[in-house]
Write a protein that binds this DNA or RNA. Structure first.
Length: 285
DNA sequence: AAGATTACCTGAAGGC
DNA sequence: TGCCTTCAGGTAATCT
């Protein structure tokens, strides 16, 4: 499940490999992957160049612009043409990569052609998608999504979360408060902060909340450095898994012993999501 | 108004 | 070549 660290690694690779390249074509195997429609996306973007790659939370924005200075007999209007963006969300099982060894299989949804370089989009469960945006709105296109968890200040984050009453497990997953954490890193954050996932913010003093803020950012940065977590599906841009899985302390370890105190890790359903935690280290308040 | 539930998907895992 | 149910999870839409 791609969360902030996995998406950040994908964004870095896209920037590295494709910036400045021209998009020549898109082969579509599952039409719903391109919104509003493959035809509109193709018409707007083919022939333009990738000008920028940005990430916000779990979203990636690819900015495309047509080469300027077309000799259309244009006089004073040698202006740059307006850009357009593709907004990508990988959801559960989306993968975008270049890999010469890849043999197209039944889960392949799109092939982008960047000046002869094929870039594959594969998505087993078909939840991921690309949305065409006119201009370069970036995060304005997702106004309901809060600030990125790695960019938000402690003060802003505290203001957004302190008054809420739901369990911290649910609030940390809420992208409207801050964007980037998903199920894996929420569980790892709460373990590090030694706080039970059912705890609501009101049960903590400001120092307790600040600890969660710090630990969330620590976990995210460490996972970015390690190339993200491959639990089931995630592969980076070059088709390789992430290395952070070996550092998970609670996620997916139900019944295994806590590395700190040897108590078996437990799992609880909170707000429809599985929460993994150590019942001894993470005290219920 | 915020919290809870469902739809979107497929494949793995478990029960019988 | 077993069939059926449940589960996994991010987000938008819908419901309470």
């Amino acid at each position: 499940m791609p969360e902030l660290p996995e998406v950040e690694n994908v964004a870095l690779s896209l920037r590295d490999a494709l910036l400045g390249k021209r998009l020549d074509g898109i082969t579509v195997r599952w039409a719903k992957t391109l919104r509003p429609s493959p035809r509109k996306v193709r018409r707007r973007l083919c022939g333009t160049r990738l000008e920028a790659v940005d990430r916000h939370g779990k979203y990636i924005f690819l900015t495309f612009r047509a080469p300027s200075g077309a000799p259309q007999g244009a006089t004073a209007s040698a202006q740059e043409r307006p850009p357009a963006q593709l907004m990508l969300h990988l959801r559960m099982t989306g993968q975008i990569f270049v890999n010469p060894a890849y043999k197209p299989d039944k889960h392949l949804r799109l092939i982008f052609d960047f000046e002869g370089q094929p870039v594959y989009y594969r998505d087993l469960r078909k939840f991921g998608f690309f949305t065409l945006l006119e201009g370069a709105p970036g995060r304005e296109a997702i106004a309901h999504v809060g600030p990125d968890m790695l960019e938000i200040t402690a003060a802003d984050w505290l203001e957004r979360i302190a008054h809420r009453r739901a369990p911290l497990k649910s609030l940390l997953l809420d992208q409207g408060i801050a964007a980037g954490l998903g199920n894996i890193y929420v569980d790892e954050t709460l373990f590090r902060a030694r706080i039970h996932p059912l705890t609501p913010p009101a049960m903590l003093d400001e120092e307790g909340l600040r600890r969660i803020y710090r630990d969330a950012r620590h976990v995210l940065r460490a996972a970015v450095k390690d190339g993200g977590t491959t639990y089931q599906d995630f592969l980076n841009f070059h088709g390789k898994p992430g290395n952070f899985r070996t550092k998970l302390r609670v996620y997916g370890r139900t019944g295994e012993t806590c590395f700190t105190c040897r108590t078996p890790i437990e799992r609880l359903k909170i707000g429809g999501r599985s929460a993994h935690f150590c019942p001894r280290c993470q005290v219920a308040l």
